[in-house]
Each structure stands twice: as structure tokens, then as C-alpha cells.
Design a protein around this nucleic acid. Structure first.
Length: 656
RNA sequence: CGCGGGGUAGAGCAAUUGGUAGCUCGUCGGGCUCAUAACCCGGAGGCUGCAGGUUCAAGUCCUGUCCCCGCAACCA
């Protein structure tokens, strides 16, 4: 029989910045679903990627002084970039598409032309507000107090030639799709879409731009680039080989079984994307699932708020599996959830360390202690004591499957942990350590008790594989499950392990996290990250106020030679300079630069000072003037350099 | 009256078509000793934001009202 196929996607992420925990959440969820489907025997295609064009990337690249391509290359393929992150998170995507890939670019041009040829794309005028200094178009609603949101200056009515897609033409068909099918889930998103966008009337969509160049050129009209909708959404089919020769899986995998998307882009996927496909005459994806967001302190996570959570730090501190598990165990996939480090640590300790890890540890350890690691062939069941647990084990896969098919990861995991909880209780009820006191009599019973526990672990581990692949494999290894006892089929029934199974004691699967210590480490890491995010170089802005020449001329700057320099006692900052200022009398100046210079290094140097400042006392000593330094800020740290002059300049020379 | 989501124990969340308000953590008390100071049992703690209504029965349905969050069309 031919394998069932399953095509699942994440959104393609916009690499204008490093990705945060929210992106990781979505990708991990998609990965779990993909792994689950593979486990059940499906032929899976799992696609993720990056959407690399657009104004914002162009701007960011310019700021960074690199080409847009260099900019996105760095974020996508560079160290600790997106590819690295997915590798770290153990993401099992089969394909990775970048919208700058050559095959995608040419496919988009063909798609654009196809839509143009069939009359659904037409040339029109895009009317808006234009800010001349910024060279930017804005819509009425984007304006801040009627002015340009970027620079705050006045804007003027303007129009731009642009291509439009006849979205309006498909309004009724899309409405039907949303309201009368389960195309879009969760259901609550449907109301939002219909009320907000369809009922007011769908307007045609502007699908080209002339205001920036970092995009896919419209091949029959130079100057226009394809705007994001056509470019980005089409990735789901170009990555399969639609209108290109890079791949040849379109017939095999399209239509997609599900697009996982964040709720902020549900609109594009549930309205624009189906309409585009209708126009192309292609089948629609079977489902779009809009998942919720991870909130921080009840609010949205964003760079500008400075409250993004870095998945690298968490994965490195707690382990990839622990992080993956937490994300899918804690939050209902369809709605928002509150992320917190405390919740993460608690979940790791309670579910993974105390319940699962400890169950494995105590079970394997008892098998080692009482049976040298190999259970006896003769075992004694006890219907009354075993029925509840074995019943739960043998029906677990079905309950799990039911939840997984609804993308209810949280509930699927809850089902597994109900059984794990029950198993911990089962140990107490049967008190193996008491049985072990009389092996002659109780050996067979003890053997069966441990066998039942191993079965719980075996089946749980199989079902946990999509969530925590590495750890689940380790559980299976320790309980002595071979390949046939690790399959999806074998998870459907109790008794997959041979009765004389041999267990392998291993390291603790999930060590308990010391909450206090971990929180402190996170705080430090966050601090370091904040610092790294500071600009490389900051300089004081220039003063807008003018100074008249006469006032300036009153300042008497002179070259001075350092005859002696010492640290001022009891002062952390001050250095005391004895200077030759050319008058024949030594001049003493105190300067707060001890942080940057050792006194002995400065002796003999030629510096610049202003000598007609009124004398001032510091730490009980008199300072006559001020040494001139250059100051700037690097990564938030203040830097200072004395102006050190050519030694050929004689002491006392006037600066003018 | 722009749209949508949410207000349930100290905290974080659940509750199929209306049918005894549950779970995790925390807290208090007890048990066990195989295990990762873990595991097991029990107790306390709620007028389900507020006010009305429908019903034998409302967290759930209806009306009003207050508070929080997100979105508000070219923003990827």
C-alpha cells in the first residue's frame, strides 16, 4: 500500500533581525507535527524558510553598509543565524526555501505573468500620501497626526503606478471557504477575518512596487518589483517545483495538509493566498491553522519593547528537548500564552525531572538492583492491582492520536503524563522494595511490577518522540526496547517488550534545575545581550546652538608637556598632572581619566589644555585648566582618548 | 456603539452538546525509602469581573456594564 502523504509548512520568516522564541515556538510545533506524521508512517514534506525581500531589508542593509543579499545571508546562514537555530533546535525540515533562491525568483516571475495574462493582475494607480524627503508612500491610516510617521514632516497627495490583483473578484468564494468549511482554524479566527476584511468589502491588492528595488523584478515592466504577497505566499508551491525545475514534488505533495501560521498573518493565508490559488486554478491547501503568541508579562514580544526572549540562551542552559517540551506542553496551541522563565523551570523540574526522569531512574535502578538488569521469565500478574495501569497503557496511543490530529499538543502531552503519574503511584501501591525482601516468594510478582513500569516508559517514549526526539530515544535505549518495540504500531498495545528484557542504567535524563541559580544565569545572559545590542559606536550629537567667534576666541588652548603625573590618593578617577606650559612656572591640572591611563605612561607626552579656566579644587588640590580629550561610546561603554600631540610642538604653543 | 480574544483558589491554566467547578505550582499535615531532597496520600483555599434574565439546572445561553490584551488593510 502506498504511504499517506503529509505536507506541512511554517511561515517563511522575515530575516530583518534574529529570530526569537515566538518563531521558535511555531517551528517547533510544526516539527513535532511533522515528526508525529513520520512516526505514524506518512511520507512527510516539511518546509520552512525565509522571506528575504522588501523595503525593510533594503533599509537595514543600507544602515549596516552592506548589500541586501549580504545582509540576509548573514542572518540566515551566518553564525547563530536562522539555519543554525533550527539545527540547534533539532528541526527536521525536509526543505528550506529562501525567496532569493534563483528558482523561486524565476517561478515568481512566471506566476506574476500568469496572473497578468489571465486578467487578474492589472496596472493601475496607487493613491496615497507621499513624503518627499523619505521617498516613501504612506496610507492615510499610517500617518501620525497627518504627518510622515518616519520623519514627522508634511506629506502630499500622490499616486504611483502599480499592479493590482483582483482580490475583490474572489471575495464570495473566499467567504464561503471561511464560513462554510473548516479551512481556517481555530474557528474564532474566522469571525475576525470575515468581519474585518470580507464584510467591509475586499479591495484589490497592490502587488507591485516602484518605491524600492530589493525584490523580484516584474520581467515585463522594469522598475516594478513584485510585492510581498505574490512573492512570499507562493513559496509553498515553488518549493515543490511549481513553475521551476529545481524540484518535482508538486504533484506529489500539493495541496498542503496544513499551513501553521501566527495569528498576525492569518489574513494573508486565509484570504489572499486562497484567492491567488483560485486565480491560478490550483487546488487550495486543506487547512490553515492560526496559532497564538507567546506573550511576555501579558504583552506582545517585540524588539522595540526590548523584551524578546533568545532561544539560544534557553536551549543552551536547559537543553533543546526541555525547551521544545515546555513550549508545546504549557501553551494551548490555538491561543496566546504567557511565557516566563519561572514557568519553564517549573515544567522542566516537575514533568521532566520529577515525573518522567525519576520514573525511569527508579524503574531501571530497581531492575538492576533486584534482577541484575534482566527481568525473570516467570512473572505474576495481579489483575486487581494491574488493571488500571495496563488499561491506561494500552489505550494511551488512541487518546494521544486523537489530540495530535487536532493539533492539541498540550492535551496529547497531558494524556501521556497522566499515565506517567499513574505509574509513579503504582510503584507506591506495590512497594517493590517490600516485595524484594522475599525474592523466593515475591520474585515473579516483582518482575511483573517492573515490567509494567517499563511498558509505561516504552510507550510514553514512543509517543514523546516527536516532542523530545533525543531524550525519547534515550528512554527507549534504557528500557531495552529494540526497533520493533519502538514503532508506532508497537505503541498501540501493552506487551511490546520481551518479558526477559534487559535494561540499561544511564545518566539522569533530565537533571533538576536549580531555579535560583538558573534565573541568575538568565539575568546575566540577558544583560550581556542587552549590551551586545547597543550600538557599536555612539558619538555626541553636535550642538545646534552657534557660538560667536569672539566667545570662542576667549578660550586659550595651549600645548603642554607632562613633567610628572601621579594618581591622586583616595581618588578612583583623578590623575594629577604637573605640566610645562611654556611660562617657566609649572602648572597643575587634575583630570578624571584614571580609568583609561596609567600615570607613568603619560610622562613626557605633549597634550592639549585650556589654561584660562578659573582654578578649581578637587579632592583638596587645585586644578588650573583642563586637558582636552576625545570621547565616544562603544557598546554602551564610555571611551576616552587624550589628545596627544606631536612632540615637535613646543610647550606653550597657542592653539588656534 | 470598528473587529476579535480574555477576566475561574495566592500564581498559571482546564472544563465536549448547559448537568457535582478540575489541573499544576505554592501552602498545611501525613506516608514511603526504589529513585533525580524525588515519589504517594490527605486538608485548607472559589458567591467563575459586576448586575440582571432564560432554565428543573448556567463558568457555559441572552441583555447590560466595567477592566485587560491584540488587530484595525498594503505593515513581510
Amino acid at each position: 500500500m502506498e504511504k499517506k502523504r503529509f505536507y506541512i509548512t511554517t511561515p517563511i520568516y522575515y530575516p530583518s533581525d534574529k529570530l526569537h522564541i515566538g518563531h521558535t515556538y511555531c517551528t517547533v510545533a510544526t516539527d513535532a507535527m511533522a515528526r508525529y506524521k513520520r512516526l505514524t508512517g506518512c511520507d512527510v514534506m516539511f518546509l520552512t524558510g525565509t522571506d528575504e525581500h522588501g523595503q525593510k531589508i533594503e533599509d537595514k542593509a543600507r544602515e549596516a553598509g552592506v548589500t541586501p543579499q549580504q545582509f540576509v545571508d548573514h542572518i540566515v546562514t551566518g553564525p547563530r543565524g536562522i539555519l543554525d537555530l533550527w539545527k540547534l533546535m533539532n528541526i527536521s525540515n525536509d526543505r528550506f526555501i529562501r525567496t532569493t533562491d534563483g528558482y523561486h525568483v524565476s517561478a515568481i516571475q512566471k506566476i506574476f505573468r500568469k496572473l497578468y495574462d489571465n486578467g487578474d493582475i492589472y496596472k493601475g494607480k496607487y493613491v496615497g500620501k507621499y513624503c518627499k524627503p523619505c521617498e516613501s508612500f504612506w496610507t492615510e491610516s499610517q500617518l501620525v497626526d497627518g504627518k510622515c510617521p518616519d520623519c514627522g514632516r508634511e506629506v502630499a497627495d500622490a499616486e504611483e503606478e502599480a499592479y493590482f490583483f483582483r482580490l475583490s473578484k474572489y471575495a464570495e468564494r473566499v467567504r464561503h471557504l471561511l464560513e462554510d468549511t473548516d479551512f481556517l482554524e481555530p474557528r474564532s479566527r474566522v469571525h475576525e477575518m470575515v468581519n474585518n476584511f470580507i464584510k467591509p468589502g475586499l479591495e484589490d491588492l497592490c502587488v507591485s512596487r516602484t518605491s524600492f528595488t530589493w525584490g523580484i523584478p516584474v520581467d515585463f515592466d522594469p522598475g516594478h518589483v513584485v510585492y510581498v504577497w505574490v512573492d512570499a505566499l507562493s513559496n509553498y508551491i515553488t518549493a515543490l517545483g511549481y513553475e521551476n525545475n529545481q524540484y518535482d514534488d508538486y504533484g506529489k505533495f500539493w495541496p498542503a495538509d496544513v499551513h501553521f501560521v501566527g495569528k498576525e498573518i492569518v489574513r494573508f493565508h486565509s484570504i489572499i493566498w486562497p484567492a491567488m490559488l483560485m486565480s491560478l486554478g490550483e487546488p487550495l491547501p486543506k487547512k490553515v491553522f492560526g496559532h497564538g503568541w507567546l506573550l511576555l508579562d501579558g504583552g506582545k514580544m517585540s524588539k522595540s519593547k526590548g523584551n524578546v526572549v533568545d532561544p539560544y540562551i534557553l536551549a543552551e542552559l536547559f537543553g533543546v528537548d526541555a525547551l521544545r517540551f515546555f513550549l508545546l506542553r504549557t501553551f494551548p496551541f490555538g491561543s496566546d500564552g504567557n511565557f516566563s522563565n519561572e514557568a519553564l523551570i517549573q515544567t522542566i523540574n516537575v514533568d521532566l525531572a520529577n515525573d518522567l526522569g525519576n520514573l525511569l531512574s527508579r524503574t531501571v535502578s530497581m531492575a538492576g538492583k533486584y534482577f541484575d538488569g534482566q527481568l525473570p521469565a516467570v512473572q505474576a500478574g495481579d489483575e486487581e492491582k494491574d488493571a488500571e495501569l495496563t488499561g491506561m497503557i494500552s489505550t494511551l496511543r488512541d487518546r494521544y492520536e486523537e489530540q495530535m490530529e487536532k493539533f492539541a499538543f498540550q492535551n496529547a502531552l497531558a494524556e501521556i503524563f497522566k499515565v506517567i503519574d499513574r505509574a509513579n503511584k503504582y510503584i507506591d501501591e506495590n512497594a517493590p522494595w517490600a516485595l524484594a525482601k522475599d525474592m523466593e516468594t515475591n520474585g515473579p510478582r516483582l518482575g511483573r511490577v517492573l515490567y509494567n513500569l517499563l511498558e509505561v516508559l516504552r510507550i510514553s517514549a514512543i509517543l514523546l518522540t516527536p516532542f523530545i526526539p533525543e531524550s525519547a530515544a534515550e528512554v527507549l535505549r534504557q528500557v531495552g526496547a529494540d526497533a520493533s518495540a519502538s514503532s508506532w504500531e508497537s505503541a498501540a498495545r501493552y506487551g511490546g517488550l520481551p518479558e526477559t528484557v534487559t535494561v540499561v542504567r544511564g545518566e539522569n535524563l533530565f537533571p533538576r534545575v536549580d531555579a535560583e541559580q538558573a534565573l541568575e544565569q538568565l539575568e546575566q545572559a540577558a544583560e550581556a545581550a542587552r549590551k551586545a545590542a547597543l550600538p557599536d559606536l555612539e558619538i555626541e550629537p553636535q550642538l545646534p546652538e552657534k557660538v560667536d567667534f569672539e566667545t570662542f576666541s576667549k578660550s586659550d588652548f595651549r600645548a603642554v608637556k607632562v613633567k610628572d603625573c601621579q594618581a591622586v590618593k583616595k581618588s578612583a578617577k583623578l590623575l594629577k598632572f604637573t605640566l610645562d606650559d611654556g611660562t617657566g612656572t609649572d602648572r597643575q591640572i587634575l583630570s578624571g581619566i584614571a580609568k583609561w591611563y596609567r600615570p607613568e605612561d603619560l610622562i613626557g607626552k605633549t597634550l592639549m589644555a585650556i589654561v584660562n579656566l578659573p582654578p578649581r579644587k578637587m579632592m583638596g588640590q587645585e586644578s588650573n585648566g583642563m586637558l582636552i580629550s576625545a570621547v565616544h561610546t562603544e557598546k554602551g561603554e564610555e571611551c576616552l582618548h587624550l589628545l596627544i600631540l606631536d612632540d615637535a610642538i613646543p610647550a606653550g604653543a597657542k592653539m588656534c
